[in-house]
Design a protein around this nucleic acid. Structure first.
Lengths: 245, 245
DNA sequence: GCAAAAGTGTTGGAAATACACCCATGT
DNA sequence: ACATGGGTGTATTTCCAACACTTTTGC
């Protein structure tokens, strides 16, 4: 169906589609995936080289136009899979970015979705456009307004991991408390007291002792725990946190 | 420009535009404004009667398609003004809703924006489509997926007023602590201890004593305070809130 | 036995909670 | 004088932050 192709990404070249959108005065809708990973005690993000001439040496997020008949979140999962081959990951919507001039080729409103994945446990199956992991700290310029989107998503992540157990998806199923703490320290970019950190997590009662220990470490091995999602789901969310601003 | 009209709301009838979008396989983008107000100790929301036949007796949020050359937030402010005549209000983006089948007439992705206004201090200047305030508690069915959008926005509001001084825009510039507490109690749907509530707010140091008192109350008049936005802006935001989930 | 990280308790201060009486005003 | 909500203080508890030594393992 040719009319569908005007807004679908399909097989057509994205530049052609954008040109078409622009000439017909149509607003495009895209999804950009911000995929965070954690490795070597550093927070990283997946980026590709931009398709567009204008940004040909700039890095960009994993994005594409959405199709006519897919939900926004379906589009996000599709795009993630098309770009990386990844499946079975969380995706959460963070924000819509809709400035009129954010895209040079056409008017495109984009919705940012965030995902956290374990770099070791998810092999990238597609490596087009130089897809690879970038340390968060060493990213400077990016294509479009993607630097801004990334910043918003990073701030969202910093807040979100403190009130939601998102972070566990960045770790192996069984992890040591040191790994968990490294994760929080890296994402929040702060140092935490080891004893208080343990106390906090144990008191939440959501860590399950696996009776296993780290191996191949050049020091005393730590116990391995896993996160009890079931118990977490059952907990009732409180609506009163205490006013603080 | 006729191509612009295919996506702009402009003067054309919205039903015509939707039909056109659908027949051309184009995805529309709209903004829906969720306008909360506070009156008689109750949280209310502004709704209109839906334009569409299918939902002709259902209430709906204040929405419209966005124009080609306006930012998303500009569109939100425009739509709010077109529907109500209101200006000078906060608007915050809450979430995009993009299920493929959420709109019966065409594929439309919508971005919800929230606003809080003081019912007494903002006169509605336009009353088309039976625009008026509805008590949050007495809303049952709504058009489209607007009930769901409203629920998400309400939950967003409940969380947001605890970490951000949003709520003050629902009150007069000068307000008593009782009014402030009523607001929090109504929105969160809980009872709070009066003394602890005061202690909390005073300790934040953001309330300014106006040296004025309530009038025309059939009991001891309360002091009136105003919120010191300037001082609030200067405060540095903390990135560590304490893990809790 | 040395290096490296794991594991563990206590204490002081701050903040949250629970709770009851007197005060100022309008009627 | 009474009804109504305004205004205040204290004791208790809970939570958070600061802090140092012993243990286990690999080399």
């Amino acid at each position: 169906m040719s009319s569908e192709a005007t807004i679908a990404s399909g097989k057509k070249n994205i530049k052609t589609i954008l040109k078409q959108l622009e000439s017909e005065g149509i607003i495009g809708i895209s999804v950009d995936c911000v995929i965070f990973g954690f490795d070597e005690n550093e927070l990283k993000v997946l980026l590709i080289k931009s398709d567009l001439e204008k940004f040909k040496n700039k890095w960009s997020l994993l994005g594409d136009l959405i199709n006519k008949n897919e939900d926004l979140r379906e589009a996000a999962y599709r795009i993630l899979e098309e770009r990386t081959g990844l499946r079975d990951v969380y995706l959460e919507q963070v924000k819509a970015f809709g400035e009129a001039m954010r895209h040079p080729a056409a008017r495109v409103v984009t919705i940012a979705y965030c995902s956290l994945i374990n770099i070791q446990h998810h092999q990238l199956k597609i490596l087009d456009n130089e897809l690879h992991w970038h340390k968060i700290k060493s990213i400077d310029e990016m294509a479009f307004d993607h630097k801004k989107i990334l910043t918003v998503c990073y701030e969202w992540l910093q807040k979100r991991i403190q009130e939601h157990p998102l972070g566990f998806s960045l770790l192996p199923g069984k992890f040591s408390l040191r790994e968990l703490q490294n994760l929080y320290e890296a994402i929040l970019n702060i140092k935490l007291d080891r004893r208080n950190f343990r106390k906090k997590f144990f008191s939440m009662g959501l860590l399950e002792d696996t009776q296993e220990y780290e191996t191949d470490v050049p020091h005393r091995p730590g116990k391995l725990y896993k996160f009890n999602y079931e118990k977490y789901q059952k907990k009732e969310r409180k609506k009163w946190f205490g006013i603080d601003f």
